[in-house]
């Protein structure tokens, strides 16, 4: 284990040295170099995750604890956001649909929007803000206060204990949160429809489920696993490789959110392209 860890750590250290070297030379050149080196380091970090995740010992207790913290503790925020998004989207869409005499299509339109795109994307962004930054800050503070080193001298693999458990939890919990956020968002939409009209609960949800197809639900659900994985891996990478004391903690939390959100959009673009290939 030790040799393996030091080998990978060696790769990461080498990359760091190159990154530092890249700061010399002309400005635009060094920015490109730094960008590609950062991408390379995240790739190495991700490969290490896939290598470690299969190896025993499996940290089930920590995985459960993290799932509780990441999943259950995020639900109130995600739920409130989902409700507001559903409500606001309905209220804002109504006047436009009225112009075309298509108010009756409101439940179907809102349902497709929420399930296909708004639910997963907004939940993932909220998740990046709450969980991504949390992972980044927590691991960074553990790094600068030598807690990660202390774990290593207790002969616990800190990568497995801290990173693998968090990334797995986030990957599994975000899809569940998106399902819950979609449900609460649709309820918000029902409330929004009833603010300026009267539609029964049964009728509203009948229209919602009639309008939804497998191709709306399935790809949207699958991409949330990738969102969760990307957010957690970026947050973990930023935290695990933090330096420069308390300043490094702030930077790690900040860049975990920025890069995590960016990853959500990038994955979304790819997912939409793949989905459209199957639809055509």
């Amino acid at each position: 284990m030790e040799k393996h860890i030091s080998h990978i750590a060696g790769n990461e250290n080498q990359m760091k040295e190159i990154t530092q070297g890249a700061s010399s030379g002309n400005f635009s050149n060094s920015i490109f170099k730094k960008f590609f080196l950062e991408v390379s380091m995240i790739t190495i970090f991700t490969l290490r995750f896939f290598k470690e995740v299969w190896k025993p010992p499996y940290e089930f207790n920590e995985l459960l604890r993290q799932s509780f913290l990441i999943g259950y503790k995020s639900f109130p925020l995600v739920g409130i956001t989902g409700f507001i998004i559903g409500l606001v989207l309905t209220v804002q869409s109504r006047p436009t649909l009225m112009k075309f005499g298509a108010v009756s299509l409101l439940p179907a339109m809102v349902a497709v929007s929420i399930i296909r795109e708004i639910g997963p994307a907004i939940t993932a962004l909220i998740f990046a803000g709450k969980v991504g930054s949390g992972i980044g800050a927590e691991l960074a503070s553990m790094k600068v206060t030598e807690q990660i080193d202390a774990m290593q001298v207790s002969w616990t693999n800190p990568f497995k204990y801290l990173v693998v458990t968090r990334v797995l939890s986030a990957t599994l919990m975000l899809p569940l949160l998106v399902v819950l956020a979609d449900a609460v968002g649709l309820f918000g939409a029902y409330v929004g429809v009833n603010l300026k009209g009267s539609v029964s609960f049964h009728l509203f949800f009948s229209q919602v489920f009639q309008s939804l197809e497998f191709k709306d639900v399935f790809p949207a659900f699958i991409k949330t696993f990738f969102f969760g994985f990307a957010i957690a891996i970026v947050g973990s990478y930023k935290g695990y490789n933090a330096n420069k004391g308390t300043e490094g903690v702030g930077k790690a939390a900040n860049s975990a959110v920025v890069f995590g959100s960016l990853m959500v959009f990038l994955i979304d673009v790819v997912a939409v392209q793949i989905t459209s290939l199957f639809e055509n």
């Binding site: 927590e138 553990m142 206060t145 030598e146 807690q147 080193d149 202390a150 001298v153």
Partner: peptide, 17 residues
Amino acid sequence: LRKKIGFLFQSGALYDS
């Protein structure tokens, strides 16, 4: 062998959580 070595860190390195 290294398990027979104890290390007290400068900051204590206690697990905050």
